[in-house]
Design a protein around this nucleic acid. Structure first.
Length: 508
RNA sequence: GGCGCGUUGGUCAAGGGGUUAAGACGCCUCCCUUUCACGGAGGAAUCACGGGUUCGAUUCCCGUACGUGCUACCA
């Protein structure tokens, strides 16, 4: 018996990896790591028409970016290979046939038209979506309603058919969910779900059960949208492998968008990312910006996701991956769905930028600046700049706006702020300031400030006003750290050059 | 419509028979700074409703309402 914890994540490679998906993997991963178990990724591709080439690699890239190190077997084979459902078709068929032989499932030959007919005929206001269930199955075309020889004939002729589960009539199906505790259903209210499609591919229902068994999964976490199909899975476990071998389930609360379950479209609609990383829809070629590209740190991303529906009971909100592994517990996961709040998401990123050391930020900031056309020649300067501005950056992309003036002279000036204050006296002041600064051998914050203020007193001008002007001269606008710190950082020559350039500009 | 799941401020949420019902985001005011932030000090804002049980219910039970999910040869 395998007593080791094995959890699995089954992404569907039909779309990008979105918030809900990442959180599901994350909880899987935290649980596995906490209990010293395995974390398995199984690839779902049940619907071939929607299968997207390269999606598997994309998913693994996202996981790695998040700091989740998955078992990469699905990409190159491993203990439980093959991992793609399309390559496991014979396995699923075998179990499906077994169910038929034992009377727990049946062949159904109904065409899409016939199904449509049944649904439209039985449709009433009270029952807007009739099911293929115990009430109607004997009126349909299947191996239960048809005589044996007729069934054999249809099968021999290769008639297209599916295999459906035969849900029992009057049974209360219940199980214990790790989050919702006791949950129960009436079997007669559940329909005869398709297990094996006409093309031989399994539906999710058959695939999860078979794969969870074969891959020796002990705990399975999935979104709450699956809770309604739990009875089907329970029956399959009962018929196929025995209820005692069924993994423990946790149905995670949904992540909600501004209206309903967060959808991939909400991103474009409300202006925030929903995917971990950039995702290009293969059909429309439409690019959706990911959290990574939007300027999120992976540390912040997993942090904000982890606490969307879970907390450790204390006031702590900032958790590193290691802390999450240590403190995560499935019992403290919420029952109710949580609405995603982009403002709070940004706050988490801000906090992580502040929290991280310069060295951890360095290469990412360099990427941001270089992507914007700023070449970084001086690594030491870069480090100093990061230290100076990181507290005021919310997204990684903010490092450009907050840091560019350390590397390049301003291209434009905030004229609206300068114009009303600019006069001949100020002009003379700055001309003399440049001369004085030039003679200073020790170009430090203290000395610059001293020279600046002494000259202001001498000229009888309020230092405050001058400070604002100097800032605009050096930065171009009214942002950034202390103006004397900026001067020291860019150096004497550059400071004097920028003052001269600005005087010329303002005096036109 | 049926079935499932849920419901503490605008959002994330702690708490769980007796509390001034934590904290965070956002918002507002003030301080700091003659920049933008950070930071600091305050503020407005919550137990969906109705019945029980109880000396006492936000907390337990039952209804109702509302939200949300499923109701496909999608996952």
């Amino acid at each position: 018996m395998n007593s080791k914890v094995r959890v699995r994540f089954a992404p569907s490679p039909t779309g990008g990896l979105h918030l809900g998906g990442v959180r599901t993997v994350l909880y899987n991963y935290l649980f596995a790591r906490k209990h010293g178990g395995d974390f398995v990724v199984r690839i779902e591709d049940t619907d071939q028409t929607r299968y997207v080439e390269g999606a598997e690699k994309y998913i693994f890239e996202c996981l790695k970016w998040c700091g989740i190190e998955p078992d990469e077997s699905p990409l190159h084979g491993g203990e439980f290979a093959p991992y793609r459902q399309s390559e496991r078709k014979p396995i699923y068929r075998e179990y499906a046939e077994k169910l038929v032989n034992e009377g727990f499932a049946y062949y159904a030959f109904d065409t899409p038209e016939e199904l449509e007919k049944m649904r439209s005929e039985n449709k009433t206001t009270e029952n807007p979506s009739p099911q293929y269930d115990g009430k109607v199955r004997m009126q349909m075309k299947n191996s239960l309603s048809l005589p044996a020889d007729k069934v054999k004939k249809l099968l021999d002729e290769g008639t297209r058919h599916v295999i459906r589960i035969k849900m029992p009539a009057n049974e209360t199906i219940s199980f214990t969910d790790m989050i919702h505790h006791e949950v129960s259903f009436e079997s007669s209210l559940v329909d005869d779900k398709v297990l094996l499609k006409a093309d031989g591919m399994p539906t999710y229902h058959l695939a999860v059960v078979v794969d969870d068994y074969l891959m020796k999964i002990t705990h399975a976490f999935r979104g709450e949208e699956w809770l309604s199909s739990a009875p089907v899975h329970i029956m399959l476990w009962k018929y196929l492998f025995g209820l005692e071998k069924m993994p423990q389930w946790a149905h995670l609360p949904l992540i909600m968008g501004p209206s309903g379950k967060l959808s991939k479209r909400d991103g474009a609609k409300y202006g925030f990312p929903v995917f971990a990383m950039n995702w290009t829809d293969s059909k429309t070629n439409e690019l959706t910006e990911g959290f990574k590209e939007k300027g999120f740190l992976p540390e912040a991303f997993i942090n904000l996701l982890a606490v969307l529906g879970w907390n450790d009971g204390t006031e702590q909100e900032l958790f590193s991956m290691d802390e999450l592994i240590e403190k995560f517990s499935i019992e403290r996961v919420h029952k109710a769905g949580a609405k995603f709040d982009f403002e709070k998401a940004k706050w988490f990123n801000h906090e992580w930028i502040k929290k991280l050391k310069v060295n951890s930020l360095k290469f990412k900031v360099k990427d941001v600046l270089e992507a914007a056309g700023i070449q970084i020649a001086d690594e030491l300067l870069l480090e100093k700049v990061i230290e100076l501005v990181k507290d005021r950056c919310t997204l990684m992309s903010d490092f450009y706006e907050q840091g560019k003036f350390f590397f390049v002279s301003p291209a434009t000036y905030d004229e609206a702020s300068v114009k009303p204050k600019w006069d001949e006296a100020k002009k003379i002041y700055f001309e003399e300031l440049a001369v004085k600064l030039n003679t200073e051998l020790n170009f430090t914050v203290e000395n610059i400030e001293l020279i600046f203020k002494e000259l202001a007193i001498e000229k009888n001008i309020k230092p405050g006003e001058l400070q604002m002007l100097l800032r605009v001269m050096l930065v171009g606008s009214k942002i950034g750290p202390g103006v004397f710190v900026i001067a020291e950082t860019i150096g004497k020559e550059e400071t004097i050059r920028r003052i001269a350039k600005a005087i010329e500009f303002f005096s036109q």
